[in-house]
Amino acid sequence: MKFLKLGLASVIASTALFAGTYNVDASHSNVGFKVKHMMISNVVGKFDTFNGSFEYDEKTKTLKSLVGEIDVNSINTENAKRDAHLKESDFFAAKEFNNIKFVLSKVEDDKAYGKLTLRGVTKDVVLDLENNGTVKDPWGNTRVGLALSGKINRIDYGLKYNTVLEAGGVAVDEIVKLDIQLEGILAK
């Protein structure tokens, strides 16, 4: 029995040796989205200001935890008038709800399960997870690349603005496609 306990303790300890906390490198990451406009094209955008950290186990190549926060006021669709409208109460209500938060709950296979809080509403989401591996950069830092993608229904979060089109359909689709590219640097 002692050997079993000792063996389990050494496995747990060795796993902990390979897990590390990584800070998101915002200059090499992107938090993007796209949504169908007028039912015929996509408008793409991103958030310029965000931060986060995650725990990654190099030995098992698994994501253990992730917390990220986005500044809603940094929305950027390359159109200042549209960005201003998106910050109003029709959409993000940025004066009242100035951030979006994601907290990872678990990872199973290539799926990341977590809680997304947007406009004061928290919902469970499932995102596709792509693990791009680790690398040592020229300055001796360990970096990890991750990609998260998926869909959310903006109506679930209170972003209800829309206009019905004469020919049918709506001006802005309810489904928003997420495309998040993260590069993290091992904290020292």
Rank of each mutant, 00 (worst) to 15 (best):
N141E: 04
S149M: 04
L146G: 02
G140P: 08
V126L: 12
D128V: 09
I152G: 03
I155S: 11
G150F: 00
G140D: 03
G158W: 07
T134R: 03
G145E: 02
G145I: 09
G133L: 07
N132D: 07
P138C: 13
N131G: 05
G158H: 13
D137A: 15
K151W: 04
L146K: 01
D156T: 04
G145D: 09
W139Y: 15
R143W: 00
R154P: 00
I155V: 13
K151Q: 14
I155G: 02
K160G: 10
N132A: 05
S149D: 03
G145N: 10
N131H: 12
R154A: 00
G150M: 01
V125N: 06
P138F: 13
D156K: 09
N131A: 02
K151M: 14
T134N: 09
V135A: 15
S149Q: 11
L159I: 03
G158T: 11
K151L: 05
G145M: 12
L159H: 01
I155K: 14
G133D: 04
T142Y: 13
N141W: 00
G158C: 12
R143F: 04
V144T: 14
L148P: 03
A147M: 09
S149R: 10
E130W: 01
T142N: 15
G145F: 14
N141L: 01
G133K: 10
L129I: 08
R143P: 02
V126T: 15
L146V: 02
I152L: 06
K151D: 13
I152T: 00
L159Q: 04
T134F: 01
V144K: 12
A147T: 09
L148H: 06
G145R: 05
N132Q: 05
G140M: 11
D156R: 10
G150Q: 06
S149C: 02
D128I: 08
Y157C: 03
I152P: 00
V135T: 15
G150H: 00
L129K: 09
V125P: 04
L129Q: 03
L129H: 02
V144L: 14
L129M: 04
V144G: 08
T142S: 14
R143H: 04
G133S: 04
E130G: 07
T142V: 10
K160V: 07
E130T: 12
T134W: 03
R154Q: 01
T142L: 12
K151S: 14
N131I: 02
G158E: 12
T134E: 05
P138N: 14
L159S: 02
N141K: 12
W139H: 14
D156E: 15
G150V: 00
P138R: 15
L148V: 08
T134L: 10
T142Q: 13
Y157T: 05
Y157V: 03
G133R: 05
T142K: 15
W139M: 08
R154C: 02
V126G: 12
A147G: 14
I155L: 01
D128H: 11
A147L: 06
N153L: 10
D137H: 11
D137R: 07
K136C: 09
I155E: 07
T134V: 04
L127E: 04
V144H: 15
L159V: 06
G150R: 02
R154V: 00
E130A: 09
N132H: 13
V135W: 13
D156V: 07
L127Q: 05
G145A: 09
L148Q: 09
E130S: 14
A147E: 06
V125Y: 03
I155P: 08
W139N: 13
